[in-house]
């Protein structure tokens, strides 16, 4: 019972991170019909930006104001939002109307660029000119901006009074921030005029422009929102793990890939699907780890993908689309 509760809580926490990242994949796919491979790198940079902000403002685990987490979160969301805007503007917009494969290859290029920019830190030539990038060359530990005493700690099983369920502030932060952001996005997409325009553009961009919708602006906003959500996931991930791998580490791509699986499982292009898919992936992973084997946690996620693709290839909440040949 203790195990069940702990696995559920971990699953929801990890799953909500996947969901935040998956939203960026799915929103861009919904509107431009291409997979933004650079998205996992925006997530990585979100984590590193929030770390850099902490360094810049002198926040450490021992010494930081109470609002530190909020500053790091919003700061890194703003920076990644600007980054997402720039990427779309410089790399993807010039290719509007080009064959999809061109955009896809460009996305892979952007991804490699972002992964490697951090490595310039160790470039002697740049260092001579005093140019140093604040992040990304080697793993680092992240200052915890919240108290590390459990908010709640209780034993469920009276036979094992020492096996405790711990509710840490960081778990509350992760789940609270993720669900707040998802609720805001849900409102934006389904409750505002801008969201209605986004849904119209995703269905048919040409006709949307005949309604007076500035399609380029909607695309920009989509990138900004998707990237900011990925940054939030990056910040929360850093707080949860308290360490970051270097920017070109394969782990970032793996996490991005799992979030992409979440988008596909939920039905790519579907905002609610991405949220549901993320939570599902997180739960499957954590339950597998708790009850079967921790070493096989990647296997559970990708097996779920295979099962979904076999029996419901359009995703759980997706609609089947007949591909025109």
């Amino acid at each position: 019972m203790t195990k069940l509760l702990q696995a559920s809580m971990d699953g929801v926490a990890v799953g909500s991170l996947y969901a935040l990242i998956a939203l960026g994949y799915t929103m861009v796919y919904g509107i431009l019909k291409f997979i933004n491979f650079a998205h996992s790198d925006v997530f990585m940079l979100g984590a590193w930006f929030s770390f850099a902000i902490c360094g810049f403002l002198g926040y450490t685990t021992a010494d930081h104001p109470v609002y530190a987490a909020l500053v790091a979160l919003i700061g890194s969301m703003a920076m990644c939002g600007a980054l997402g805007f720039t990427i779309e503007r410089l790399a993807y917009r010039p290719l509007r109307g080009a064959p999809r494969i061109n955009v896809l290859i460009t996305a892979i290029g952007v991804s490699l660029l972002l992964e490697n920019v951090g490595q310039l830190n160790s470039n002697k030539f740049l260092a001579e000119y005093g140019i140093k990038f604040p992040f990304g060359t080697r793993p680092t530990s992240v200052p915890l901006l919240l108290p590390d005493q459990p908010l709640l700690s209780f034993a469920l099983d009276s036979a094992h009074p020492n096996t405790l369920v711990n509710v840490l502030p960081v778990d509350v932060l992760v789940i609270g921030v993720a669900f707040t952001l998802m609720a805001l996005l849900q409102y934006l997409v389904f409750g505002t005029s801008l969201g209605r325009a986004m849904r119209a553009v995703s269905y048919d961009a040409k006709t949307a422009s005949l309604m007076g919708i500035d399609v380029d602006r909607v695309v920009s906003i989509t990138f900004v929102i998707g990237s900011a959500l990925a940054a939030a996931a990056g910040f929360l991930y850093g707080q949860k793990l308290q360490s970051l791998r270097q920017s070109a580490d394969g782990l970032w791509v793996l996490l991005g890939l799992k979030a992409f699986v979440a988008a596909v499982v939920g039905g790519v292009g579907n905002v609610r699907g991405a949220m549901a898919g993320g939570l599902m992936i997180g739960l499957v992973e954590q339950f597998g780890a708790a009850y079967l084997s921790t070493n096989l946690r990647d296997l559970y996620v990708f097996s779920l993908l295979i099962v979904v693709l076999l029996f419901k290839p359009e995703g759980l909440l997706g609609k089947a689309v007949v591909e025109k040949v």
Partner: peptide, 10 residues
């Protein structure tokens, strides 16, 4: 527009 072009998802 031609072919009506209503947003079927809305």
């Amino acid at each position: 527009p031609e072919g009506r072009g209503v947003f079927a998802n809305l």
